[in-house]
Design a protein around this nucleic acid. Structure first.
Length: 873
RNA sequence: GGGCGCAUAGCUCAGUUGGUUAGAGCGCUGCGUUCACAUCGCAGAGGUCAUAGGUUCGAGCCCUAUUGCGCCCACCA
């Protein structure tokens, strides 16, 4: 096989096979008599590029789907991307900015057009990268959340929920990102601990008794929107203040003092400023006490006219200035350091502003109930199971979902408003929810209607993915066949964003669970434990790894490293595991393939003429069984490990070495069976190299559609496995002895073995042992220890290694004795030192410890050598 | 404030329901290169399984407490 290069992968192998698979549609699934098996992939963000998290996620899913496909399921994986409203809009706006334009210069329609154009040009990047990874998606079914079909599903869902009273519009405190200038859901504004300050501010009391009340706040700029001060009803300190009026510093607005259970008397001063427009708790207090709400900020985070002298300032600049002014007025009592959790925009990491705003919401509790039930009933199972509790906790404490976004890229809300005519009545204020633009206002007949400006949260389309991609709301064969799906593989980060919501959507709109199993893998981190992220500059780019070592090596390395559900710590070096393994497979195949030329015989038990033959086939079937079991339990690393150990340490290290002394005719059927079966088992992990070698054996037949090996008990042979284990250990022991006695590498040792063992077990391996261990096995009759020999015990068998004439035994004994003497001297010296009080009291502890350790080591060494001398007698 | 996870060889980690002498990869040391592979082979050194108790004939694994690290959730300003 001079034509095969020494190192895998040769250029272009991966691309060659991927093109062929795609061309022949081997991943295409359609309703058939076969049992369907569907997996759900998180649709990557259309602006995304493949990162390690994707690589891990998609490799796991690809292993499942390839495995099931080979088990003759109708295996479906629908690929696609989501439109990533905020992220995509940001990207396109940035591009516009380079031209010196903003989206407002273009206007909504032109801007959206521009985004579509961008998507056409760059939106396919991640899809191409998934192909390089080897993902076996059904590309004919590629979907995009802004496609016509999926958009229809979104609209349908909005209308159905609205009609059911589960979607409402209202003024509530939401998370506002001043940079993206849109509302965010609670999940989109994760809290991070920030080292901030707690400012104690004096609010003067009218009437002057006492002269002022002190409130504590972390956001002094919001005091401009204060409409009350609240204290706990049972707080004695403030009893006299109830009903009094205090003055808001700077603006001098009169504020009521109200009492509310919510206030924690232990925190700060026990008195709290109430800003209903900028804090969720204050909003509730405001509603209870009928307080006005004063919004003091513009959408971009600058202060508005309500902020009086601070109008136009950025919120953080305003904070500084207010503090200076308070200080000047003697109203800032003190400042304390304070660690608190602050929401950040998950897209741009800007500090979000809780703000009163008119938005659309989904009422979640009714949707959550069935989603809780099916998990409690075990209809949906999480792997690993600890995620069950996390899911249930979230579901049981679910809050309403803010779904409107003030951006342009996304599904526009299917709601119209009557902008009015002179006859406009109150009824006209009602939103008109409709599948199409209504011709006129049903109340005043005006045709002057305006669609809601907002678009929907991207997750409002993603949560429908398992069925919207199959054609819902249309009831068709695809939907009936492939829904509910079997397994969802995903990262923990989107458990709430996506997994939980898909559960609710599936149960609400299909009355069925969306998937039976949820496998949650770990987060990819770099060594040292940090999250891998662009901003930290510690990315290990999967595409770079593919360029360097190939997709197979990338995939396999990830699988070896990623223990079930635990985080994955990466370094570039770790990909050598996969690289070396592909190399091993490749080179073993270069050895095996030429031997198969003469064989077409299928394997039958009679062809297994020696122990090693029976052994390797037994091990093969056991490995097939173990691999299948591991995959069934989502123990991917275990499956990968079994395949690795079998191929490398059993097939290559032992079997291939053993058969080198036999004829091709004898071993070809066995080699073929083992290699082919192994390739099939490995294919889900390493699709490319397995296809390459497979097609050398089976030209024109793709391994992707070949049948998964069925482990067969009849090939299992525990006795032979035990005997071979004896051989392996005996060989190891003899090699160890060689090394200890410094027998020259090429010298052949004679080993005296009880006759029965020699004949039965070691005899057939004579050629192999001679070649690889430089050992000649001789059967003997009596149990007496020959002169000048060393003894090796394996199980209950005694092996005598003859040393006469091999090495100069006297000289070797002498050398060992000398060594023992040397070590004894050293031991004594060390022992003396350790009994020296002077040393013990003066030397640093670690030196003493080290000395003690070295004494122990020396003693052990002496013991070992003495044992060896004993054997040589 | 609540919850979860992790702590095993120099490094990164496996270890399925408790069962003999605790494993791997990398790194390190020695030897080996005509005959698939130096991205290789053989041999070796290296571990009080975080700490303290407990359950058990038996604990890396189960229970309790402690320490350290990490993550998630949470409207105490």
């Amino acid at each position: 096989m001079a034509d095969l290069p020494k190192v895998y992968p040769p250029k272009e192998v991966e691309e060659k096979w991927y093109r062929l698979w795609e061309k022949e549609g081997v991943f295409h699934a359609k309703p058939s008599s076969r049992t369907p098996y569907t997996i759900v992939i998180p649709p990557p963000n259309v602006t995304g590029i493949l990162h390690m998290g994707h690589a891990l996620n998609n490799t796991l899913q690809d292993i499942l789907i390839r495995w099931k496909r080979m088990e003759d399921f109708e295996a479906l994986w629908v690929p696609g991307t989501d439109h990533a409203g905020i992220a995509t809009q940001n990207v396109v706006e940035k591009a516009l900015a380079k031209e010196g334009k903003s989206r407002h210069d273009l206007g909504r329609e032109k801007f959206v057009e521009r985004v579509w154009k961008w998507r056409e040009e760059y939106g396919g990047t991640i899809i191409r990268q998934l192909k390089r990874l080897g993902a076996s998606c059904d590309w004919e079914r590629e979907r995009f959340t802004m496609d016509e079909g999926l958009s229809r599903a979104v609209q349908e869902v909005f209308i159905r929920l609205y009609e059911k009273g589960l979607i409402y519009r209202g003024h509530y405190i939401i998370n506002w990102c001043p940079r993206c200038q849109t509302a965010l859901s609670d999940e989109e504004a994760p809290h991070q601990d920030v080292e901030g300050h707690l400012y104690y501010i004096r609010y003067p009391v009218e009437g002057g008794k006492p002269s002022h009340i002190v409130v504590a706040t972390t956001r002094p700029e919001t005091l401009l929107g204060d409409t009350a001060v609240a204290v706990h009803p049972k707080d004695e300190r403030y009893r006299t203040l109830l009903g009094k009026t205090v003055r808001l510093p700077i603006l001098n607005r009169p504020l009521k003092v109200v009492e509310d259970e919510f206030v924690n008397p232990e925190f700060g001063t026990g008195a709290v400023k109430v800003t209903p427009a900028h804090d969720p708790n204050d909003f509730l207090i405001g509603q209870k006490h009928n307080l006005p709400s004063v919004n003091v900020m513009n959408p971009d985070g600058t202060m508005n006219q309500e902020a009086g002298p601070y109008k136009g300032l950025d919120r953080f600049e305003c904070r500084k200035r207010i503090l200076v002014d308070l200080e000047k007025g003697g109203l800032l009592e003190k400042t304390e350091k304070h660690l608190h959790a602050v929401g950040h925009c998950y897209r741009c990491h800007t500090v979000v502003e809780p703000q009163l705003s008119l938005q659309w919401f989904v009422k979640m509790r009714p949707l959550a109930e069935p989603a809780i039930r099916v998990v409690k009933e075990g209809k949906v199972v999480f792997h690993p199971s600890r995620w069950t509790k996390i899911y249930l906790d979230w579901m049981e404490n679910i809050r309403d979902w803010c779904i409107s976004r003030q951006i342009w890229w996304g599904h526009r809300i299917p709601v119209w408003y009557c902008v009015g005519t002179d006859h406009c009545k109150l009824a006209c204020k009602e939103p008109l929810v409709s599948r199409e633009r209504p011709a006129q206002c049903p109340h005043c007949k005006s045709t002057n209607l305006k669609q809601d400006e907002d678009v929907l949260d991207t997750w409002f389309s993603s949560w429908l993915w398992p069925f919207s991609t199959l054609g819902w709301p249309e009831e068709n064969k695809d939907l009936r066949t492939f829904y509910p799906t079997d397994t969802l593989v995903t990262a923990p980060e989107i458990l709430f964003f996506w997994v939980a919501r898909m559960m609710m959507a599936g149960l609400e709109f299909r009355k069925e669970i969306p998937f039976k199993n949820v496998y949650i893998h770990g987060t990819v981190r770099v060594e040292g434990g940090k999250k891998m992220s662009k901003s930290l500059g510690n990315i290990i780019d999967p595409l770079e790894i593919i360029d360097e070592v190939g997709a197979d090596a990338l995939r396999f390395s990830l699988m070896m490293i990623a223990a079930t559900g635990s985080d994955v710590y990466l370094s570039k070096q770790k990909f050598f595991i996969g690289r070396n393994f592909t190399n091993k497979i490749w080179n073993a195949s270069r050895l095996v393939l030429p031997k198969l030329k003469k064989s077409s015989k299928p394997l039958s038990p009679e062809l297994l003429t020696t122990d090693p033959d029976r052994w390797i086939v037994s091990r093969l079937h056991r490995t097939a069984q173990e691999t299948t079991d591991a995959l069934s339990g989502y123990r991917f690393n275990e499956a990968a490990g079994k395949l690795y150990d079998f191929f490398w340490h059993e097939f290559c290290d032992w079997y291939l070495e053993i058969i080198k002394t036999r004829t091709d005719e004898e071993v070809a059927p066995i080699l073929k069976e083992v290699l082919e079966t192994f390739l099939l088992l490995l294919h889900p992990f390493m699709p490319f190299i397995t296809e390459e070698i497979w097609q050398k054996l089976n030209p024109g037949k793709t391994i992707s559609l070949s049948r998964w090996p069925k482990p067969d008990e009849k090939w299992l042979n525990p006795h032979v496995e035990e005997r071979m284990s004896f051989v392996v250990r005996a060989t190891g022991a003899i090699r160890t002895l060689r090394s200890e006695l410094r027998v020259p590498p090429k010298t052949v040792l004679t080993v005296d073995v009880p006759k029965s063992d020699a004949a039965k077990v070691l005899g057939p391996l004579n050629d192999f042992l001679l070649k690889n261990a430089k050992v000649r096995v001789v059967g003997r009759d009596d149990a007496k220890k020959p002169k000048d020999s060393a003894t090796v015990m394996i199980d209950n068998h005694t092996l005598h290694v003859l040393l006469e004439g091999v090495i100069d035994l006297q000289k070797e004994k002498g050398r060992i004795q000398e060594e023992v003497a040397r070590r004894r001297t050293r031991k004594e010296r060390t022992a003396t030192l350790l009994s020296d009080k002077n040393f013990l009291s003066r030397a640093p502890e670690e030196i003493v410890a080290k000395t003690e350790e070295s004494l122990k080591e020396t003693e052990e060494g002496i013991q070992k050598l003495e044992q060896l001398l004993e054997e040589l007698k």
